[in-house]
Amino acid sequence: MLDAQQSLRDRWKTLSQCVCDGARLMVGQGNYAAYAAHVRKTHPDREPMTETEFFRNRENARFGVGNTSGFRCC
């Protein structure tokens, strides 16, 4: 019975993480841990952005900051 409860907890944790990641992506915020792991694996010569820099980068991309196409949210 204990293994079944642990398995259910693990599946619930995985599902809730997927829902949270999906919600973040819907509003333009990616998963920082996934980003940092990707940079470390595929670009070992580069230092990943800090979590604050990553958040600002995603916010700027979402709202077109620095974009020359003229898009602006507000």
Rank of each mutant, 00 (worst) to 15 (best):
M1P: 05
L2C: 01
L2F: 08
D3W: 05
D3L: 07
D3Q: 10
A4C: 04
A4K: 09
A4D: 15
Q5M: 09
Q5V: 07
Q5F: 10
Q5E: 11
Q6S: 05
Q6V: 11
S7D: 11
S7V: 01
L8D: 11
L8S: 10
R9H: 09
R9V: 10
R9A: 12
R9C: 05
D10A: 12
R11D: 13
W12V: 05
W12R: 06
K13N: 13
K13S: 12
T14F: 05
L15F: 11
L15C: 02
S16T: 13
S16R: 14
Q17T: 14
Q17F: 03
Q17C: 00
Q17I: 01
C18Y: 07
C18M: 05
C18D: 07
V19A: 06
V19L: 09
C20M: 07
D21K: 15
D21Y: 09
G22N: 14
G22W: 07
A23T: 04
A23H: 06
R24H: 04
R24Q: 06
R24L: 07
R24W: 02
R24F: 02
L25Q: 12
L25Y: 08
L25R: 15
M26N: 12
M26V: 01
V27M: 12
V27C: 10
V27F: 14
Q29G: 02
G30P: 02
G30H: 03
G30W: 02
G30I: 03
Y32L: 05
Y32Q: 05
A33Q: 13
Y35L: 03
A36Q: 13
A36S: 13
A37M: 01
V39M: 09
V39P: 03
R40Y: 00
R40Q: 09
K41N: 03
K41G: 00
T42H: 13
H43S: 05
H43C: 04
D45W: 11
D45Y: 03
D45E: 15
R46C: 01
E47S: 14
E47V: 13
P48F: 02
M49I: 01
M49V: 01
M49N: 03
E51H: 08
T52S: 08
E53D: 10
E53P: 04
E53W: 05
F54S: 04
F54H: 14
F54A: 08
F55D: 02
F55K: 12
F55C: 03
R56C: 03
R56E: 02
R56F: 04
R56W: 06
R56G: 00
R58P: 00
R58W: 03
R58G: 02
E59V: 15
E59L: 15
E59C: 11
N60S: 11
A61E: 12
A61K: 14
R62W: 07
R62A: 15
R62L: 14
F63I: 12
F63Y: 15
G64Y: 09
G64P: 06
G64F: 06
G64M: 06
V65I: 14
V65L: 09
G66A: 04
G66H: 11
N67H: 07
N67P: 00
N67R: 15
T68L: 08
T68Q: 13
T68K: 15
S69L: 02
S69K: 13
G70E: 08
G70D: 07
F71K: 10
F71W: 13
F71G: 01
R72M: 01
C73S: 11
C73V: 06
C73Y: 14
C74N: 14
C74D: 12
C74Q: 13
